[in-house]
């Protein structure tokens, strides 16, 4: 068996952009109950479990990239199920390798053969890696997983009303041109859907190194009647906030270049109507 090294990202260069407007070519569940979470989180869905209430995904990282945030969050909230959503296929591929779950990988193997020309070599390589990682990190990272999807279109297909406690939008594509603003992952209209899948009191975290996008995301959240800014004090106390810039690959890059980041952290509040 080869030595236990993580697959290296530079071999899996992802495209920087993917068009969220185009029709999708990956399978999409019809409704949340159709998503089989037992293969995403086999540890939390033991086969002989009583038909008790099933655990639900509570955190979602939208546009999770290479999954740095999930990997950092996982030990902080070991009992919380988290999912990363990524549209770009190559980033998703690497994520699968990182997901450390052999069963998950095997379930997906056939599905992503279509993406990889050298699927067979990759499969062999990843099998070795995952076995190595499992040996070195027993019992860890059982609560994280990823799906390849377009979260701008299919969020309600994955989550029920009020299911999520935290949503992350970390260093999203800025889409500078005005005609492409509708491709931005945070917009007043999309916030309707994010508000729907979030529990009242849940928190939405956004961060970017592009000031213009930072202002945009903040103004969208500010305008939206179902979101309210989280207070300074609370932000300071929140252990997750530090991770926004330190845990993600993009954040580390910004820190290396001593760039600025712009955060907007908002809470889902109940409707004021009636």
């Amino acid at each position: 068996m080869s030595s236990a090294r993580l697959p290296r990202k530079r071999f899996y260069r992802a495209r920087a952009h993917s068009n969220p407007l185009s029709d999708s070519h990956f399978p999409v569940p019809n409704c949340p109950s159709e998503v089989d979470y037992s293969f995403h989180y086999p540890y939390f869905f033991p086969k002989d479990a009583p038909p008790a209430p099933k655990p639900k995904v509570r955190f979602a990282d939208v546009g999770c990239g290479f999954g740095g945030m999930l990997v950092s969050l996982s030990p902080l909230f070991p009992d919380t199920l988290m999912i990363g959503m990524e549209l770009r296929d190559k980033a998703f591929l690497l994520l699968l390798f990182l997901s450390l779950s052999l069963s998950l990988f095997i379930n997906y193997a056939e599905y992503f053969i279509s993406f990889t020309r050298s699927a067979h070599q990759v499969t062999e390589y990843v099998k070795d890696r995952i076995q190595g990682l499992r040996a070195t990190n027993p019992g860890q990272y059982n609560n994280i997983s990823v799906v390849r999807t377009n979260s701008m279109k299919y969020i309600p297909n994955y989550f029920e009303k009020g299911q999520l406690l935290k949503m992350f939008f970390l260093f999203p594509d800025p889409h500078f041109k005005e005609k492409n603003h509708r491709r931005r992952v945070v917009s007043v209209q999309l916030l309707d859907e994010y508000a729907y899948v979030m529990e009242v009191g849940g928190i939405i975290y956004t961060v970017t190194d592009v000031e213009e996008l930072g202002d945009w995301m903040k103004s969208c959240l500010e305008k939206h009647p179902l979101f309210e800014a989280v207070g300074e004090e609370e932000i300071k106390k929140d252990p997750v906030v530090k991770l926004l810039t330190s845990a993600t690959e993009e954040g580390q890059k910004v820190a290396r270049n001593e760039g600025q980041t712009f955060m907007a952290i908002y809470r889902r509040v109940a409707s004021k109507e009636d």
């Binding site: 309707d192 508000a195 939206h224 109507e273």
Partner: peptide, 20 residues
């Protein structure tokens, strides 16, 4: 979507999605 009293400000509160 809940149709609000002041609809010109947008209908932001989703009551449900009927998926199937």
């Amino acid at each position: 979507t809940v149709f609000p009293r002041n609809a010109l400000k947008g209908a932001h509160e989703i009551q449900s999605f009927c998926l199937g």
